[in-house]
Every structure is written in structure tokens, then in C-alpha cells.
Design a protein around this nucleic acid. Structure first.
Length: 519
DNA sequence: CGTTTTTGACCCGCGC
DNA sequence: GCGCGGGTCAAAAACG
């Protein structure tokens, strides 16, 4: 049902990648074998280029025969295509020096290079996965919006009246507004609709906040880094300039408004930690510290420094009542690839922000029906103390309370699928910052599912790792790519210590089919 | 020497 | 209008 045009482009743009990643194990193994058997071949070999090539092929075929006689054809193909270069260099070294020591060193260097390549490949796949996840979330939000629109139309048709015509008009507005606010292409939006959105959307965004002017000011501030690629400098001048010339560049304003709005949604994480900050995989630069009223502990302000102009910020403050509790508030979405550890947290903020903002941008007439409340209704019954949503705050905020005792957490996770993943990933250790993101993923999934299943809390739900794996499986038509990506996903999600979830790969198909069935 | 942290100043919105 | 509080800036200091 979903398509992933952006992410699918990655692997297919580089058709070598799946192949190379697929070949890594073979290559390493072959090289080892070559190393131990090299002396015979060196004696037999002749130095001309042609015979070198011939030798390489024979060498590889020998190895294949020794290792796996039944599948000689396939492995032979792999070796012919991928091993020629390294083997040739090895032969050259053996001929020029003829010392096993040196060859072994070269072998080691080659193996390290290959490992490095493999690591880079994995890293690239992880980044692609991160992007895919974000795109997936955005698409999910679009789907929710469309379904909401359909629901509204259905409801309005049931209670047909004159007022309903007006409401329907609002409902038809809603979707394009939603699309725009998500920062997605507005090609589907007609110019007429865009005009409506232009004139009405910004106020509607702020109506839900407690202070319209405050929101307006923040909106102006937050526009500047988005419209200017230079980052956060001189927000006031830029915003004023933008405000004065806003009539000229409507789409830019819409885009910046959407992104600024996205940035306003916050995900707050309460966790016990003796460390000054929660290590979440990102690079942060502290840009300020303030003594907040009512709290003897200072509040520190950080911004992401992994990319120039990244709008993500976080606030760190210790709880006044209990100093061991660290409250970390994330705001915004990263505009750059992330390492896996950071991807977890970033995806949380993205998903949570998407939920909150979709809620805040839905029509205000159906308060409890918006995704934010779907989120609440999905999450809170399971663990009311684990996640709370603050709608009265100036910014919509999801608070994840991770300070519960381990026993409580375990008890809850037994019945709460949302907590399965954190529990698995050892989230009780605060430095394992995977949980919030996993929460976000799982929450998002559940929110969507609850939407699809008639707003019921799913009794059988996907955990975050499975959801990601499911998306991966849905994306990857190429079996090689799927295998490589699944391996990478498993390593990302489960971490190095958790191999018992190796069967999650086998569960991917089930997850995918079940999720597809739901759709 | 480049990067990060510290810290006082500043800006802005809000309430009185 | 004024003070307060939250948030940010930017120069200086500290650090690696």
C-alpha cells in the first residue's frame, strides 16, 4: 500500500551494494583459505598477466571446490567477479617478496579494508533505514489525514444539514493543510486550496496554543533557520524580513511554517541518570544555561551539531524533587543522516511530533478524535504513568516517564506491547537511549493501527523492531538487499548483546503480512 | 589552534 | 510601563 520512492532509490542507484554486502562473508573466508594454501600456487604460477588471470580463476575454483563442491557454480561466479583484484595483488606480492609474513600482513590489510567497506555499507544502510522510517512516518500521517477526511465526509453525510456543508468545506481544507504542514510536496493541492491554506493555516496552527502571540513570535524565530540555510543566526532580523516580504514567497513560508511547527512539538524524557546528560548518539553543543524558576538545578540548552543548521535542540534539567531524575526535552527533526543510536531518538521526536502536530492541525471540533488523543488512548491505558501528553503547554509535548522501578516496568511490559522493545533493548540503562525512539516507533504504529482498527487498542501489536523490519521487508523486493538490510536492522535494533531476537527476521514476514492485512 | 563550555547580556512575551 | 521568566546570543575561558 505504501511506496517508498526516496528510500528505494538508494540501493538501486548503487546496484553494487547489495552484491558487495552479500559477498563479504565469502570474500573473507576465501581470503583466509587462500592465505593458507598459497605456497603451492605460487610455485606453480607464471608471471605473465594472462597466466595471472588464469591462475586467479583456477585458484578460486579450487577454493570453491574444497569448501563447497556442491555449489561450485555460484560461488565461482562470485569469486570471478569480485576477487580478481585482491587475488592478483596477493599473487604479485607473493612473487615479488615470496615471504609468507608479508603476504599475511597484506592479507590483514585487505581484510581490514574489506571490513571497513562492510562497516561503511552497514552505516549507509542504517542511514537509509532512518530516512525510510521518517518517510514512512510522514506517509502514515498522510494516510491518517486522508482517512480522517473520509470519516468526516461520512459523518457529515450522515447528519446532513446546512452547517455540515461548511464543515465539509473545512474538512476538505484539512488534508491539504496537513500535507503542507508535513513539509511534503503540495502538488496535489490546487491553487485555490493553497490560497485558502495560506490565509488560514497560520492562525489555525496557533489557535490551540495558550498564547497566540507567543506562538507567533516563536514561529517567526523558527522560520529563520529553515529559510536561511545558515542556521540560527540573527533570527529577529530574518524573521522581520520574512514577515515583510511574506506575500511574495508563499510556498516558502508554508514550508518554513510547517517545519517550524514540526519543531515546536516536543518529546520529553524523564529518566534516572547520574550523568549530566542523556547520551543519545547525537553531537550536542551547549549554547546556554539558565536557572529555571522553582528548580534549584539549572536548565541547560543544547543544539545538534551533527550538521550545520540542524534545528534540533534539547533541554536538560534535573528534577527538582528528585535530583537523580534527568528530564531531557527534544525538539525538532534532524535534517541530516544519523548514526543508529541517534536515529532511535530522532525518530522518536519525528514520530511524536508528527502525531502531536497532526492532532493540533486537525479541525478543533473533534478534540478527542485527533491522533494525539489516539496516541493517548492507545498508550495511556496500557501505562498511564509511562507517557503523558500535555496539550495545555505552549508546545505540545509527549513526556515519557522512564523513572519507574524495574519491577513496575517489567510488569507493565508484560501486558504492554509498547514496552516490549525497551525491555528487550535493556533500556533500564540510561545510556541505552534506544527506548524513547523505540517507544515512538511503537507508539506511532499503534496509533496508526488503532486508527485502522476502529480506534481499538490492538491486543496483538508490533514492537518497534518488528515494525521497522516490516517496513524493511515491504521495501526490499531484492532478496539480497532484504537479507543485508535485515542483518543490519537486527544489529541496530537488538544491539550487540541481544541475539535472541534473531528470529525477528523470521518474524518479519509475519509482521508484514499482518500489517498489510490490517491495511 | 579549533572546538566546546561558560556566563552575562540581551530579546521577547506575558502578567500586573 | 515595568518587572519577570524563558530562551538565545556571543565573547571569553577552558579544553583537547
Amino acid at each position: 500500500m505504501f511506496r517508498f520512492p526516496v528510500s528505494l532509490g538508494g540501493p538501486h542507484d548503487n546496484p553494487k551494494q547489495p552484491q558487495s554486502s552479500d559477498e563479504q562473508p565469502h570474500r573473507a573466508m576465501m581470503d583466509e583459505v587462500d592465505f593458507f594454501r598459497s605456497e603451492k600456487r605460487d610455485d606453480q604460477n607464471i608471471i605473465t598477466d594472462e597466466t595471472k588471470r588464469v591462475h586467479v580463476k583456477r585458484e578460486n575454483s579450487r577454493v570453491v571446490d574444497d569448501d563447497d563442491r556442491s555449489t561450485g557454480i555460484n560461488t565461482g561466479l562470485n569469486l570471478l567477479t569480485a576477487h580478481t583484484g585482491s587475488d592478483e595483488s596477493m599473487v604479485d606480492d607473493g612473487l615479488s617478496v615470496d615471504m609468507e609474513e608479508k603476504r599475511s600482513k597484506i592479507e590483514n590489510v585487505q581484510l581490514r579494508e574489506e571490513l571497513k567497506k562492510a562497516a561503511e555499507e552497514i552505516q549507509r544502510l542504517k542511514e537509509m533505514l532512518s530516512q525510510t522510517t521518517n518517510n514512512f512516518n510522514s506517509l502514515q500521517m498522510q494516510l491518517v489525514a486522508v482517512m480522517r477526511q473520509q470519516e468526516d465526509h461520512h459523518h457529515l453525510a450522515m447528519t446532513g444539514s446546512k452547517d455540515i456543508a461548511n464543515k465539509r468545506h473545512e474538512g476538505s481544507e484539512m488534508v491539504p493543510r496537513q500535507f503542507i504542514e508535513l513539509g511534503l510536496p503540495t502538488a496535489e493541492v490546487s491553487s485555490e486550496e493553497r490560497t485558502t491554506v495560506r490565509s488560514r493555516s497560520p492562525p489555525s496552527l496557533l489557535e490551540n496554543s495558550s498564547s497566540r502571540q507567543r506562538g507567533k513570535r516563536l514561529l517567526e524565530r523558527e522560520e529563520s533557520p529553515e529559510t536561511q540555510s545558515n542556521g540560527w543566526g540573527n533570527p529577529n532580523k530574518v524573521s522581520k524580513h520574512n514577515a515583510s516580504s511574506s506575500n511574495d514567497n508563499v510556498s516558502a513560508i508554508d514550508q518554513s511554517t510547517a517545519e517550524a511547527t514540526m519543531r515546536k512539538a516536543r518529546v520529553s524524557v524523564r529518566a534516572r541518570s547520574e550523568a549530566p546528560t542523556l547520551s543519545d548518539g547525537c553531537h550536542w553543543r551547549k549554547y546556554g544555561q539558565k536557572m529555571a524558576k522553582g528548580n534549584p538545578c539549572p536548565r541547560a540548552y543544547f543544539r545538534c551539531t551533527m550538521a550545520v543548521g540542524c534545528p534540533v535542540r534539547k533541554q536538560v534539567q534535573r528534577c527538582a524533587e528528585e535530583r537523580s531524575i534527568l528530564i531531557t526535552t527534544y525538539e525538532g527533526n534532524h535534517n541530516h543522516p544519523l548514526p543508529p543510536a541517534a536515529m532511535y531518538m530522532a525518530s522518536t521526536t519525528t514520530a511524536a511530533a508528527s502525531m502531536l502536530l497532526s492532532g493540533s492541525t486537525m479541525s478543533s471540533q473533534d478534540g478527542l478524535m485527533n491522533p494525539t488523543n489516539l496516541f493517548a488512548r492507545t498508550m495511556l491505558p496500557c501505562s498511564s504513568s509511562m507517557a503523558t501528553i500535555s496539550a495545555s503547554a505552549p508546545f505540545p509535548t509527549i513526556t515519557l516517564d522512564l523513572t519507574e522501578s524495574a519491577s513496575n516496568v517489567n510488569n507493565q511490559t508484560n501486558n504492554n506491547p509498547l514496552m516490549q522493545f525497551p525491555q528487550r533493548s535493556g533500556f533500564t540503562e540510561l545510556n541505552q537511549s534506544g527506548l524513547p525512539q523505540m517507544m515512538g516507533q511503537a507508539l506511532y504504529y499503534n496509533q496508526q493501527q488503532s486508527k485502522f482498527s476502529g480506534l481499538q487498542i490492538p491486543t496483538q501489536s508490533l514492537n518497534a523492531g518488528e515494525s521497522v523490519s516490516a517496513a524493511t521487508a515491504a521495501i526490499a523486493a531484492n532478496p539480497n538487499f532484504a537479507a543485508a538490510l535485515a542483518a543490519a536492522l537486527t544489529s541496530i535494533i537488538n544491539g550487540p548483546n541481544n541475539h535472541k531476537n534473531g528470529d525477528s527476521n523470521t518474524g518479519n514476514n509475519n509482521v508484514r503480512t499482518s500489517s498489510v492485512e490490517r491495511q
